[in-house]
Design a protein around this nucleic acid. Structure first.
Lengths: 177, 177
DNA sequence: GTGAACATGTAAATTGTTACATGATTAC
DNA sequence: GTAATCATGTAACAATTTACATGTTCAC
């Protein structure tokens, strides 16, 4: 989903700053989307120009903090973007790429990459479990539970088949010598 | 993973054309990466200039088909790229975005989006199951089994909680009226 | 004969990240 | 006092998709 939709979407939960939008996306939706500040600020400026959002602040002059609020125009526009959402899920996985081309690399690297992946998955599981469940919409709850289900399934798969697959790759490499 | 690595990686399994690389990526690795022809051809031209691959053909002059082969330089370079692979998994999901902002849209759209997602997951499951398992490296087998495990878990979650969540979202919207 | 699949290549447009540039506040 | 976090904004750069442009082969 593009940064504009993400910005307007976060603002649909309440007023906040550009920095706040970034934090909200990472914390609540980080499993499914990312947005850097270098993309958020220009997107907010464009949305202000279009009348989709308006500046409420400056809340803190010294901090130059500006808070944005979704306008009716913005809400209507956002509803359109979210309703029209479709298309395949896209997964970019450096780990899976390494595994797909595992026949090329050292067993040490295969091991490292598998261990790193499991560690990353456990870290993400802990992070998701640590998210406070209060003040959440049902939709948000759904995404977090989905993320937890997927992370759990990935961990289970890696624990069940990861080590065996590393051994199989190793054997295959020895056979091909 | 970038298009260059994908191109060299596919060529590590055997000679093929730019078009063939695209097909290979979609068929065997489509769950984890994509590469359009507009990115593949320039990447191949660059790799030829660097001596990482060489042209074997033209195999079919009328069709202007050119087949590429990975050189030793290319193989070494590829090993470096694959070994260095790291970083978080990135998931871009229009469906999850719609669910996250479900409080904004019509129940009809929520329903549609959930149904589309389940249909997409089932299609992907069928596609993955239909992939011939012969002539595959252990690494490739791993990625396909992983993709099947994840797709299965997603289907299970959607079947278990999808409908209930749609109902809960609906109830929440009524309460907020 | 017609549509799908095969085949290559360029260029515009999009979209975003990273780096640069600057400064305040807070907790240790 | 210093590191982390809060806060904004611009610009260079990178990577890729989509559209354009063209032609062949195969199956029905």
């Amino acid at each position: 989903m593009d940064v504009r939709t993400l910005c307007l979407g976060v603002l649909s939960f309440g007023e906040t700053s550009g920095y706040g939008i970034r934090k909200a996306v990472e914390d609540w939706f980080g499993h499914f989307a990312h947005a850097s500040l270098g993309a958020i600020y220009p997107a907010l400026a464009k949305a202000v120009a279009k009348g989709e959002i308006e500046v409420v602040g400056p809340v803190d002059v010294a901090l130059e903090k500006r808070v944005f609020r979704l306008t009716d125009i913005g809400r209507a526009s956002l509803v359109g973007s979210v309703s029209a959402a479709s298309g395949e899920e896209i997964l970019r996985s450096p780990f899976m790429t390494a595994m797909f081309f595992a026949h090329l690399i050292d067993m040490d690297d295969v091991h490292r990459v598998v261990d790193e992946r499991l560690a990353g998955l456990r870290r993400e599981q802990r992070r998701l479990r640590g998210l406070p469940s209060t003040d959440m919409t049902e939709g948000q709850r759904f995404t977090i539970r989905y993320a937890l289900a997927m992370t759990g399934a990935a961990i289970a798969f890696m624990e069940r088949e990861g080590r065996a697959m590393v051994t199989a790759i190793d054997r295959e490499k020895i056979d091909n010598r």
